[in-house]
Computed example of a mutant assay.
Amino acid sequence: MIHLLKEVGRGKRGARDLTYEEALQAAEAILGLTATPAQIGAFFIAERIKMESVEELEAFVSVLRKHAARSDLPQGIDCAGPYDGRKSSFISTIATSFVLAAAGLPVTLHGSASLPPKWGMTLADVFAAMGISDPSLSRELCLEAARQTGVLYAHAETWCPPLAKLRPIREELGMRTVLNTAEKFADYGHSPFLTFGVYHNTVFDRLGRLIMNLGYERALIIQGSEGSDELYIHRPTRTYRIEHGEASLQIIDPESFGLDTPLPEVDWTPAEQAAVTGQVLQGKGNMAFMYQVLLNAAVRLHLADRVQSVEEGLYTGKALLESGKPRELYEKWQAVLKNQPLTV
């Protein structure tokens, strides 16, 4: 590990990118925990200063996937949002997932307890507010819920144990590391389709090349709310679509679909996130959140070639919500994960 540290840690001008083979060695040492905590921390900081290359990221993803449990369920779409959570926006991904599942598109959600640098609310926090606590979420239970509903939730530190062991170092550093990107590509559901959230459009090209190397059939990089993979409903969203080995910038404007809606001010807590999710799936609550779920579902259905256009996806999602099927799947999913019988 020391010889690799010397290459990436020579400072902004002297550092060089590791080759793919060298990056594999570093990833194996870090995720296999054969490197010392000091070496791991030094590597993370050096890479943060240098900025990770596509080859380095690909190597970390490859090794991380080797250490992860990955399901053989029917393949669908992976929704890769920020593991450091959210502070000031609605996590529409949860409700969106059940609309997609109702349309026959399996969904994989994944995350962990909050991480630096943002320390925001995560999926795990919202699920805990629903009465679904991570310690009880065995892989078997999550897989059973996915079989019955089409929505798989993978708690990353359960499905990929090295991430749990590296948490103390990441918390002590308190900043973004190469794992903040790599962990979102774990692909627990072997998904051919991907939505991936980013903070800055400056990473579009680099991540686009990485996604091509990883072999996804289609993907959409989204510069969404708080770095999420969720489209805004009150203004246009920059996205980068990857398909057939090519990437193109696309601006998705809710106004062009008649959905542009001001967002209400909400003091978001995990309990409030859970409450609004339930309201949307019941066809109730503020229309901004309903429209946000419909637009995100429609774009994903189009990405996965389940509909011919975003407009068709909007009609499909609206009809599904009115039918009550997404809500039924949501209630069944909760019942399975709480290991409770579903009340009819």
Rank of each mutant, 00 (worst) to 15 (best):
L31E: 10
A26M: 15
L314E: 08
P82G: 02
T239A: 14
A42M: 10
L152N: 01
G227D: 01
L31C: 04
P106H: 04
V293L: 09
R209N: 02
N339W: 13
R170T: 06
R218F: 07
Y315R: 13
R13T: 06
R206S: 11
V293W: 03
Q25Y: 13
R241M: 12
L337V: 01
R238F: 06
V266A: 12
H67I: 03
A247Y: 01
H110N: 11
L73N: 05
L18M: 09
L220G: 09
Q250Y: 13
G189K: 00
A102I: 03
T108K: 01
R167A: 14
F43Q: 02
C160I: 05
E140D: 15
L4V: 14
A146K: 07
S225M: 10
I211G: 07
K284P: 12
G104P: 03
K50S: 07
T181Q: 10
A103T: 14
S97M: 00
Q250G: 00
W333A: 04
A129Y: 13
L301P: 03
Y330F: 15
T195S: 14
K6H: 15
V99A: 08
F44N: 09
G224T: 08
A26K: 07
R70A: 07
P326M: 10
V344S: 07
F289K: 01
F98M: 12
W159S: 09
M51G: 00
V203P: 02
T36P: 10
E331A: 08
P116Y: 12
P116N: 05
A103E: 06
E255Y: 11
P106Y: 11
D205M: 00
G208E: 00
I169T: 06
A59Q: 02
N296G: 06
P106T: 06
I94N: 07
E52I: 04
H200Q: 08
